[in-house]
Design a binder for these strands. Structure first.
Lengths: 150, 150
DNA sequence: CCTAACTGTAACTATCGCGACTACGAATGT
DNA sequence: ACATTCGTAGTCGCGATAGTTACAGTTAGG
């Protein structure tokens, strides 16, 4: 299950939306971003690191340095944001190192496979939205679009 | 995101599978279940509580008491297991109490709506499997069934 | 070239959720 | 009565998350 005390995805979406809302082409410091998202500047950099490696944002050091989108906000889906941050971590929650009984091993194998299925379902539903959608406040519209695949 | 250090769903699936594998009609104590799942008996009772309220299992106190399925294992989907345990907790991770800036409020509203969408996607994908499927070790078969809705 | 403004990263720390454990009242079969 | 088992509250330790400090490496501008 998703106790989800992890806010990286939320912060990432917030920051990217902020960057998408910047009209002129200057870079934004992690300090400014951190104030907007109400978190620590270092945390912003830690979150944006994977997204930079994924090619979604660029960063520059030095005076007038900071962050900017590397891709148009309309082209960045939330799935592209989620994947790098999620990595290989399970979406549901696996448990226990290695159960002794056969039932345990069976269940564990099943849950591992299941987790991949669920992760794919999450990713698929996130593909529907882009950073630009969030900027427009339009993510709730898609509520009405059912997942016909399920 | 799902740091998912929460193992309730995994334990629930394990325990229900164990119960599904019991051929004769006697109840199983939370102590026996806890040994199978390699967790604490009290934790088993805490996890099964919501599932009892959801009508999936029954429990009896006293000598020869314990737990048993209230429904055939073929009728219990993993979505029915997941929902009561997840409750209203976010699947992704929201953050921050109440951002001051407009961007923040926009993002937060969007993420809340988004979380419902994702939760539905998870639930939908979990509907494909039953406890009996896990007992048979057949949850990986559905890997090949794509989510056409994405 | 020197300074000021940034990033990138490594510590260390505080906080919080999860789950183990103890304990005890209530229920139930023998 | 008595042993068993559930239901639940309370306490505790561990680990993950994120805040904080610190510092080396970049870059624009005087």
């Amino acid at each position: 299950m998703a106790g989800s005390t992890n806010t990286q995805f939320a912060v990432a979406v917030h920051v990217l939306t902020y960057l998408a809302g910047v009209t002129d082409a200057h870079a934004v410091s992690s300090d400014e971003l951190s104030k907007s998202a109400n978190v620590n500047p270092v945390y912003v950099r830690r979150v944006l690191g994977p997204l930079r490696r994924a090619g979604l944002v660029r960063s520059r050091s030095g005076v007038n340095g900071g962050w900017e989108l590397a891709v148009d906000a309309r082209q960045i889906t939330l799935e592209q944001v989620w994947r790098p941050l999620q990595g290989t971590q399970p979406v549901l929650g696996l448990h226990g190192p290695d159960p002794t009984c056969a039932t345990g091993r069976n269940v564990q194998k099943a849950l591992t496979a299941l987790d991949r299925t669920v992760a794919d379902a999450v990713a698929t539903s996130l593909k529907r939205f882009t950073v630009h959608d969030i900027l427009d406040g339009q993510p709730e519209a898609a509520q009405s679009i059912p997942m016909t695949g399920g």
